[in-house]
Simulated scan of single mutants.
Amino acid sequence: MSADISWSVAAVNPEPTRPALSPREIEVLRGWLRSDSKTEVAAELFISAATVNTHLARIREKYAAVGRNAGTKAALTARALQDGLVTLDEL
């Protein structure tokens, strides 16, 4: 007697919910992931370091709101990779 188990990978491991990041939030996130400092990103994007911090805080809030906490740079890197916002080659 054989069991007919036809689970799909999606049913076992559903796609994570992506937060609705604005184009500017994505730009700031990508810049920060590629750089060594928030000051460097700020200079590159012609904004203040405080504005970079504000964008990153909002990005983290949006990830938390969909149940995908990203409290560290490493966690944000993982989320951006999972969501296709960056590739390993870009980092």
Rank of each mutant, 00 (worst) to 15 (best):
R60G: 05
A49M: 00
S2D: 07
S8E: 11
Y63Q: 06
R30L: 06
P14Q: 11
S6I: 12
A57V: 09
A49G: 02
T39I: 05
P19C: 04
E40F: 04
D4I: 10
S22P: 01
I59E: 00
V41G: 08
S37M: 10
I47S: 10
R60L: 00
P19K: 06
K38R: 15
P16L: 11
A11W: 00
I59Q: 05
Y63R: 14
D36P: 02
A11P: 01
Y63K: 05
I47Y: 03
R30Q: 11
D4Y: 03
A20P: 00
T39R: 13
A20E: 13
S35Q: 09
A43W: 08
E27V: 07
V12L: 15
K62G: 00
T17S: 05
E61S: 15
T17N: 09
A11S: 11
T39A: 12
V41L: 06
A3R: 13
P14H: 13
T39S: 05
E40N: 04
S35W: 02
P14Y: 07
S2C: 02
R34Y: 01
H55V: 10
A50V: 07
K38A: 15
I5L: 13
V52I: 09
S22V: 06
Y63T: 05
E61Y: 03
L33R: 10
P16K: 13
V9D: 06
S35N: 10
L45P: 01
T51G: 01
A10W: 10
V41P: 08
H55G: 01
A42W: 01
V9S: 02
A3P: 00
A11Q: 15
